[in-house]
Design a binder for these strands. Structure first.
Lengths: 352, 352
DNA sequence: CTGAAAGCGCTTACAG
DNA sequence: CTGAAAGCGCTTACAG
């Protein structure tokens, strides 16, 4: 900048004015400065700018998630990016692998880089000690679920309602012996989905066998082998399965196919899965809209960054079951005619 | 920081020393400063630090890609993250959607935030005007392919060799009428894959019909409908298809299933696809290892950031065909016994 | 072992 | 319309 000023024969302030397109600089000087900027390939340093101009527009925001290699999270990131891009705001991101300490470190690092705000998909039901403090001083929007003691903006799918829907879907198709496979319930969203499952089962006066509730594994590969062995060991077997997360669904479908059980056991998942329409039978799911989740979270975050002080918003996005076959395999209690009751919640947003 | 110094009754410099764990501060002062840091919840500002200390360790690196919602790219990002994390380096990322101007803006924004280096998956065969200049002054590692006029470190899959392998795989299974569906050839990696296809076809003295080469679409949804219509319109139809990219593979498999052709037309893809083992027939592919690609690119980048001046490295990662069924559907020229010739390149790395 | 001064690249608040 | 000074939060280079 100094060189530019010298080369154009003006003061630093004038360069600053031209670079920031402030009004009230003579055309002549604008011309000279711009020429010098080009010639010297000058690039303003956003960090230095924001050092002084603290109310400046956001240069970057941080996104803490569990695992960017999971399409659910990378689609969220895509949605966040779409909102941030027009503002020339960059997004820093990091995966915690569900580890609280790592999430804590990540958020700490975000702050040391002075992000303007954070979107956080919490890895558990509370934040680490550092994040906990930070979050009180920085705009933050929670995604998917909210840590206990906090109250910020929150955008998430209807975990409870969705889990109730898919469980009831199986019950409506004659199933009484239903297993639940999902994330560890220290993750609040996972806990809500399990609650939904329990609720639907209780409402139908069905019992849940403890050995039919499996939680706490991570990758599709891991789930595949866990479910493979679990299916072999179980006797009696459930007649149907609720898979509460996309990687679980993938692992379960692979295990069922390995065992040749895909046409015997019904399966319905939470969150959609690539090629779920092509597998035989097609995989029935209640989809999420991760891109929309990300977009809404980012929009709310930018409102906060801009200074909005309205009370915390909780936005819940409701989905609708996509029946592709695996969830419509009937159980022993199925009536002759398949239940006509269509539960078609429209894909709308509810704010409460 | 000022407050901390005052509160601990020491100078700024002493606070700086304690925060940076420099040696030669009396235990007493260290104690007092740390206490004040805790009490005031002081977080050093990495941006301000790097402003002065320009040879400092990297605070952030940038990753420019086509679309983070594509698992190929999000897995790369995961790999980069894994290398950056131990250094407390954050990664900024952004998607260009294959648009050169957007990629240019993205890289520009990275630089204005003074990233220590860049990993770039180019959206085309050249960089935009801004990026072009920037890249000459900032450590950069290209991933997947390298823009023409540049020469930096490069990590990529063996596009040409992989395409030759999968094309020959179809030829070995008796196919003569082979279609090629892939990315627009302005992307260098796509061009290399098409070259590989052409090369294998020529070596077998087979002709390529222009209408059997389709390129330039983006999402699985788009590919699905394009391929659906293309298959309906084609007469005669090819007996087999090379899909040169994961989203193309997904779209093609969906289209084939919609038309009930999945057992008639052979298909083999470049890059693996989730649930490709479960679909009927299983999807034969030559996989990539995007996480490893990302990891290696990041490792090379950090070497450059640390000042390495060795000549540019080109690292090429070779894969091995996974035969799952779709690629082994035989064509009219198949001999009685399937070809025994096993082409099993070991998954090793070659440097040239 | 500790600190006062100058500077990183920019902006703000003021003067002319 | 333009500029000289002070400051953002930190560090470097020097002195004591």
């Amino acid at each position: 900048m100094h060189d530019v000023a010298e080369s154009a024969g003006v003061s630093l302030k004038t360069v600053s004015r031209v670079v920031n397109r402030e009004l009230g600089v003579s055309a002549d000087l604008v011309e000279r400065v711009e020429e010098a900027v080009r010639r010297l390939q000058y690039q303003p340093d956003v960090r230095a700018r924001n050092l002084r101009q603290s109310e400046a527009r956001a240069a970057s925001i941080g996104f803490a998630m569990v695992d960017v290699a999971n399409p659910f999270f990378s689609s969220i990131l895509r949605g966040i990016e779409e909102v941030a891009r027009p503002q020339e705001c960059l997004v820093l991101s990091g995966s915690s692998d569900g580890d609280l300490a790592q999430q804590d470190r990540l958020i700490d690092t975000f702050i040391s880089q002075r992000v303007a705000g954070l979107v956080v998909v919490p890895s558990g039901d509370e934040l680490g000690p550092i994040a906990d403090e930070i979050v009180r001083g920085t705009p933050v929007v929670f995604l998917d679920c909210e840590p206990r003691v906090h109250s910020s903006d929150l955008v998430r799918s209807d975990h409870f309602g969705g889990a109730v829907s898919i469980t009831r879907h199986l019950i409506d198709h004659g199933h009484r012996d239903i297993a639940f496979l999902g994330d560890d319930i220290t993750v609040f969203s996972a806990a809500l989905r399990l609650d939904g499952f329990r609720d639907a089962m209780a409402a139908a006066e069905l019992v849940i066998r403890p050995e039919w509730v499996v939680t706490g594994h991570f990758t599709p590969v891991e789930w595949r082998s866990v479910i493979f062995e679990w299916l072999q060991a179980m006797s009696p077997r459930p007649t149907s399965i609720v898979t509460a997360q996309n990687f679980v669904t993938v692992g379960a479908v692979q295990a069922l196919h390995s065992l040749g059980l895909q046409h015997q056991l019904a399966l319905i998942g939470f969150d959609d899965v690539e090629l779920g329409d092509v597998v035989e039978p097609g995989i029935s799911v209640i989809p999420q809209n991760p891109r929309l989740l990300g977009r809404r979270a980012a929009e709310l975050l930018f409102e906060r960054i801009a200074g909005s002080e309205k009370p915390p918003v909780h936005e819940i996005i409701v989905g609708e079951i996509i029946a592709r076959g695996s969830g419509e395999i009937t159980g022993p209690g199925a009536v002759a005619a398949p239940p006509s009751r269509q539960r078609s919640k429209s894909a709308s947003k509810a704010t409460r």
